[in-house]
Amino acid sequence: MSDLAKRASVLSRRILPPVLTVLGLALLIVGSWFTINLGSSGSATFETTPNTRGVVVLTPEVLNRVNDDVTVTGRAKGDGQVWVGRTTPSDADAVVGKATRVTVDGAHVRDWSLTTKASGTGDAPATLAAADVWRQAVSGKGQARLTVSQANAPESLVVAAPGGSVERVTLTVERKTWFWQALLIALIGLIATVVGIVGLTGMARRWRAAEKKNTDTEPDPTPTEVSA
């Protein structure tokens, strides 16, 4: 065995076990967390509670970042009427104008929340629903739900509660692959952790053996009695 190969072998035996253990544990934790949160359906649900009398505008940054359908549910305070319309981003901006709006333009996986920013003043246009810019619109008492396919991306959604407040908006993306990917990561983490621990155990055994060997070969420090 050459010096280089020897060094690599020693290095891999000494460094990889702790690295694998740490990495494996991290993967196991992350994978398990995602597996539990996504569920077997692979559904990621993000939420925000704008509580606004204006409108909530969901931009392509949250609607069109995936290849799968995105379902948005708007809920009104109490049992109020909720209206949800789908159109192009520029038309959504034009029809909302300078009215009070909460723009949803991102999502945090950490706490499954939607990132928002508020702007504008005044009530939502009374003629919002009557405008000829909507590709699809739904309304309901208490809540309304609309599914956005990616066929016509990019698109924006406008959620309004005529005469009331938009209390909560949830966005759900379902992708079964995510569940299996999370499970795979957890599994790889588990394997890496086990292998790492086995490696660490071997290292500890070797250290102990080496220590014992050193102890056995060392000369007895006790001075021997010498008689004249």
Binding site: A8, S9, S12, R13, L16, P17, V19, L20, L23, G24, L27, I188, G189, I191, A192, V195, G199, G202
Partner: peptide, 14 residues
């Protein structure tokens, strides 16, 4: 050694 190769393999998969 075989154990070293195994560890490198697992690391690559991770």
């Amino acid at each position: 050694s075989r154990s070293a190769r195994r560890l490198v393999g697992v690391a690559a998969v991770a």
